[in-house]
C-alpha cells in the first residue's frame, strides 16, 4: 500500500528533516535535523512513529499538497501554523487525509517552523544515515518543490488518533536566550558585554537554517580579528567585524574565524527558532553549572511531555 501526494506549492526552506546526523562535526558536517527538534518528535510520537523519524519541515513559505492516492493519518506540530484539510485547524493536530483531499499548511499567529509527519514510511533519500537535508549542499532527503511528489509506504489510517496534540509551554517562542559567555568573551570590552546582556536585539530577515542575523547595538570586538579558525556549535553567537551578531543554527558551518561572544544553551534553541524576523530577543548569562541544571530540568519536562503523547489519548 502507498499513499501519494502531489506538491502544488512549497515555500523556500521547506525540506525533509529528521533527528539529524550527530557526531560528524569533525568532518565538516553539522548535525542538521529539525530546527525545532521537540516539535518534530511530538508530531512523530502522536502517530506512534519513532521520535526522530523523517518528516517535512515547513517554513513560513508554507506547503500545499494534494493526496492523489491512498489515505494516511498525519500530524502537524510546531508553531501556530494554519492547517487546512477537511476543515481549518491549527498546528498541533492529527488528521486523516485521503485521495482527492488538499492539505495546506501556512503561517498563522506565531512560529517559524512546523513539522508534517505521516503514519507510515516517508520515502526519502538519505546521506550518512540520516534523511535530514543539509541546506548548503542539498544532501539528504532534499528540499520540496512544486511539481514534485511525496510517497508514504505502508500508510496507516487510525481515525482514533485524530484530534489536537497538546502544545506545551516550552514549545512557545523563547524571547530570552540563556547563554554561557564566550568562548571569546575576552575579545570584548566590559561595556560591550554589558550591552549584550542588557539590550534588546531583534531577529532580522537574514534567517535560514544556517543561522539568524540579529539587529541591535553593535558588539565590536576590541581585539584584532586574527584568531585561527575554530569549531562552531549550534547556538554559537558569532560577531563579525562589523559588530553584527549571528546565532548559528541547525546547518551551521562547523568552523569559523569570527569571535563568539556567547553560546546559547542548546535546550533553549528549539523554542528560539520559533521566533520570527523582527521579534525581540534578549540574552541572559548563566554560569556553566547553572546551564547544566537548566538543561537537565528541561530534558525532564520534555521527556514527561513526550511520554504522555505515547499513551493512548
Amino acid at each position: 500500500m502507498t499513499a501519494r501526494f502531489q506538491i502544488t506549492h512549497a515555500g523556500p526552506y521547506v525540506s525533509v528533516q529528521d533527528g539529524g546526523r550527530p557526531k560528524l562535526m569533525r568532518f565538516g558536517v553539522p548535525a542538521s535535523g529539525a530546527m525545532d527538534r521537540l516539535a518534530l518528535q511530538a508530531a512523530n510520537l502522536a502517530l506512534g512513529n519513532p521520535a526522530p523519524a523523517a518528516g517535512i519541515e515547513v517554513s513560513l513559505g508554507g506547503l500545499a499538497l494534494t493526496c492523489t492516492e491512498g489515505a494516511v493519518t498525519l500530524a502537524v506540530a510546531g508553531g501556530g501554523f494554519i492547517v487546512e484539510a477537511d476543515a481549518k485547524h491549527g498546528s498541533w493536530v492529527v488528521l486523516t487525509v485521503q485521495a482527492g483531499q488538499r492539505l495546506i499548511i501556512r503561517p498563522g499567529p506565531w512560529g517559524s517552523w512546523a513539522y508534517l509527519c505521516f503514519a507510515g514510511a516517508l520515502q526519502t533519500g538519505h546521506w550518512l544515515g540520516a534523511a535530514a537535508t543539509h541546506a548548503l549542499s542539498g544532501f539528504g532527503g532534499g528540499k520540496l518543490a512544486a511539481g514534485g511528489s511525496l510517497e508514504i509506504h505502508d500508510p496507516r489510517v487510525n481515525q482514533a488518533l485524530n484530534g489536537p496534540i497538546p502544545c506545551p509551554i516550552f514549545a512557545r517562542p523563547r524571547a530570552n536566550l540563556r547563554v554561557t559567555l564566550g568562548p571569546q568573551d575576552r575579545f570584548f570590552t566590559a561595556e560591550t558585554l554589558h550591552d549584550l546582556l542588557s539590550s534588546r536585539f531583534a531577529l532580522t530577515t537574514a534567517y535560514d537554517r544556517m543561522g539568524v542575523r540579529l539587529s541591535g547595538p553593535a558588539l565590536h570586538p576590541a581585539a584584532p580579528l586574527n584568531m585561527p579558525s575554530e569549531p562552531i556549535t549550534r547556538g554559537s553567537v558569532q560577531v563579525a567585524g562589523d559588530g553584527v551578531a549571528t546565532v548559528l543554527l541547525a546547518d551551521h558551518q562547523t568552523t569559523g574565524g569570527y569571535p563568539k561572544i556567547a553560546t546559547a544553551l542548546d535546550c533553549d534553541l528549539d523554542s528560539f527558532t520559533q521566533l520570527r524576523p523582527r521579534d525581540a530577543v534578549t540574552f541572559q548569562a548563566v554560569a556553566p553549572a547553572q546551564a547544566i541544571a537548566l538543561a537537565r530540568a528541561h530534558a525532564a519536562a520534555q521527556r514527561a511531555y513526550l511520554l504522555a503523547l505515547m499513551r493512548p489519548r
Binding site: 569533525r26 568532518f27 565538516g28 558536517v29 543539509h134 548548503l136 549542499s137 544532501f139 579558525s229 558551518q253 562547523t254 568552523t255 569559523g256
Partner: peptide
Amino acid sequence: LYGFAPGY
C-alpha cells in the same frame, strides 16, 4: 582539520 562545510 575539516571545516566550513562537509568534506572541506
